[in-house]
Nucleic acid binder design. Structure first.
Lengths: 215, 215
DNA sequence: TGCAGCGGATACACTTCTGTATCGAAACGT
DNA sequence: ACGTTTCGATACAGAAGTGTATCCGCTGCA
């Protein structure tokens, strides 16, 4: 029963451990392969604890989705802030700033394999479960507009123009990122940051109008 | 035992039915949720038939991957041929030809939800199973170069330039397609062809240098 | 410090899936 | 047409997961 009005600290801690365990289990066995037993066990509990906190597996997974998508937006914000400070401090040319920015973003945002698996699983889960769709879509859309705003500000400060609408731009970026990390892991078993920096740089040449580089 | 040198017609038919059943089951329960029992049953067999044809579930799934990825390339080829004929017959302007081409491709290639689910599941399966990776990657790479060649020919015949390298272009396109179909199904529960035509048109404006339209 | 009840463990009665071993019927060659 | 092979069905033993009912120790509060 998750609808307890009163959430004691103990309860909250248990739920947090179950949540973390669920992320692990879903990442390595898939949403379809995740069992109540497996999750409870990985969290160091028995199934009793699970059923005392959630009515069903689905209920927990919905929580996982919310948390994961929110975390992603937060990461982008951090990366953007870091880049902005970095650039301000160094007073770089546009060319150098873009190059450095790409590098920063790749290093800060390249997802570990766990994360790639988890994201893919959750997307699939949402596709299959009507009930999870609305929440998932809302969270993703929020992330997308958030990221776009960040990019817009960054690019504006560099004096470069984005060539497409926000929606198309974000679809391209998100698809490109996914595609890139998945193929990396499939081919190398890891993400090579240099390759990703190069890839993202080339993508940028496509989606923005770079002003004639003064550097 | 799948390593029988002699494959009788009966055997081949059984394997084909199991393959088709596996695609269904994986699409709607996920690779993790697919069981030998479930697949055999959907194919109208008992598990006896399964174990007589495959040593394990993994062996069957590898077959599914090969078949699915090959089918996708074939579909693109059909769409491209159809478009080329269409255009030749009508002697259209570049602008009209691009518009028509986008429409044709969207209508011919928009994947049903089943297919979206299946593709995502198989990609995940390959990520998780070392043994399936090489085959999956090879098949995908082949599809990508195949599609690129088709596009290159089409665009060349229209006198438009692709702005990025083949690799980047294909990464953008594949990611964009995936992203688009998944979000469509998440938000609407279906793919709206008009929306996709519009989206793909806008993407084209980004990835190609359109010569000044004479029409 | 004592006790009410919360929260997690345990027990129980299923169900579902697995892999192997064995059996019988359909398919095939001569 | 008949014997042989092949291939799918069935039977079996066991593993793993499910949800519910019950129990009991810890925690928090007077």
């Amino acid at each position: 029963m998750s609808d307890h009005a009163t959430t004691t600290p103990r309860r909250a801690a248990t739920r947090a451990r179950l949540l973390a365990a669920a992320k692990d289990v879903i990442a390595d066995r898939g949403a379809g392969g995740a069992t109540v037993e497996g999750i409870a066990e990985r969290a160091g509990f028995t199934r009793g604890a699970f059923y005392s906190n959630y009515a069903s597996l689905d209920e927990l997974i919905v929580d996982v989705i919310r948390e994961v998508v929110e975390t992603r937006l937060a990461q982008v914000r951090v990366a953007a802030t870091q880049f902005a400070q970095h650039r301000e401090a160094d007073g770089l040319t546009i060319h150098a700033a873009l190059e450095g920015g790409v590098r920063d973003f790749v290093h800060l945002l390249q997802p570990p394999m766990q994360e790639v698996l988890l994201q893919s699983e959750l997307r699939l889960y949402a596709l299959r479960h009507e009930g999870a769709r609305a929440g998932y879509v809302a969270a993703v859309r929020e992330t997308m507009t958030g990221v776009y705003e960040i990019l817009e500000t960054l690019f504006a400060s560099l004096g470069v123009q984005i060539r497409a609408s926000p929606e198309i731009t974000m679809d391209i970026l998100m698809g490109f990122f996914d595609q890139g990390s998945v193929m990396s892991y499939l081919e190398l078993g890891r993400v090579d940051p240099d390759v990703q920096v190069d890839r993202l740089g080339r993508l940028l040449d496509v989606i923005i109008d770079r002003s004639p580089s003064p550097g």
